[in-house]
Design a protein around this nucleic acid. Structure first.
Lengths: 177, 177
DNA sequence: ACTCTACCAGACAGGTCTGTCTAGTCTCAT
DNA sequence: ATGAGACTAGACAGACCTGTCTGGTAGAGT
């Protein structure tokens, strides 16, 4: 992986996440990453490709972070949601990058939306398999609810209702599991 | 209320909701509303003012729609969420206009974010008062969860997981209430 | 030694954005 | 009938957008 490419992607990640995708221009990324414009377009054929790379990287990062968490079955789910609530309460949290991106790209056929869909499918599948592992008969329905809960946690956390998210999550997870 | 102003606001509502706020330009709204540019700026001093008007109107509309629903206490909450799930399954649904707007306006101090905050405060308060009316001791915590659930429903529904939202909501509402 | 690749700086094109301004029409109340 | 206010059409300014292109530097592999 090239050094300049890394800088571009990291700068884009920071700016896209904290300020939004449409509002951050390529010139700004170039300036803050300290690269030439030609270098930018050498690594990323278009801004859209950079956006896709941003979300794909984020997808892999989150998959890695959740895979590293301990526990099995339902206990693992509890751990995941506790972590999620903790993150959404932290400084600099501005919601889920995938949901924010989806809100900015209205066309469901856009590549960005495909990545968002992939992420959600993965999360839903993870919940389902953990529930099935615990021998829960209603795995499908409950997994769907947990995905929905995940959305709610990140959205609420991102809009500033961070402290109350903890108790809300405990209520929900406790009631359903 | 002026006829031209109405046309502008309705066109903006349609375009902002279905395509996003930043992606829709003033010129496009003017063309589709069939008004002159001077007329537009006569009624709305800036695009931001139009955006605020769009969200304020939407706020009032939703408040009116929910107030019209029947029932009392917990039963009313069930009705509200059933309606919400139904809407989020309908054609042309593209998520919650407030959450979508908040994702596009990253600055928490922006007027748009204030309106979004107002809307959420109102919904939370409505839930709390309905729970208190039913004599629930945990009204605060449960209201917080119901706001979170509302977020999840609109987000999931807007991203195409519409049919499964119904059962997920039933599961959640049933478990908590 | 030579070439290839990554990198730099920055001008440029062509388009779109918001917002202003000129100039003129129509309606209605006084 | 005159003046105010809402409207129309559209040119214009100035900023910003993405993406291309020129021209040049430095290091690494063959």
């Amino acid at each position: 992986m090239s050094e300049a490419r890394n800088r571009i992607l990291e700068t884009a990640t920071r700016l896209f996440y904290t300020e939004g995708i449409h509002t951050v221009g390529v010139d700004r990324i170039i300036a803050e990453a300290g690269v030439a414009k030609a270098t930018f377009y050498h690594h990323f054929p278009s801004k859209d490709e950079l956006v896709s790379a941003y979300l794909t990287t984020e997808y892999e990062r989150q998959r890695g972070a959740l895979s590293a968490l301990p526990g099995e079955g339902v206990e693992r789910i509890r751990t995941i949601f506790a972590k999620l609530a903790e993150l959404s309460d932290g400084p600099g949290f501005r919601g889920c990058p995938f949901l924010n991106a989806a809100a900015e790209f209205a066309d469901p056929a856009h590549p960005v939306r495909t990545i968002v869909g992939d992420y959600r499918d993965w999360f839903r599948g993870l919940m389902r398999s953990l529930l099935a592992e615990a021998g829960r008969a209603d795995a499908d329905r409950t997994a769907e609810f947990l995905l929905l809960l995940r959305d709610g946690v990140t959205v609420s956390g991102g809009l500033g209702d961070s402290t109350t998210v903890h108790t809300a999550v405990e209520t929900a997870v406790g009631a359903v599991l």
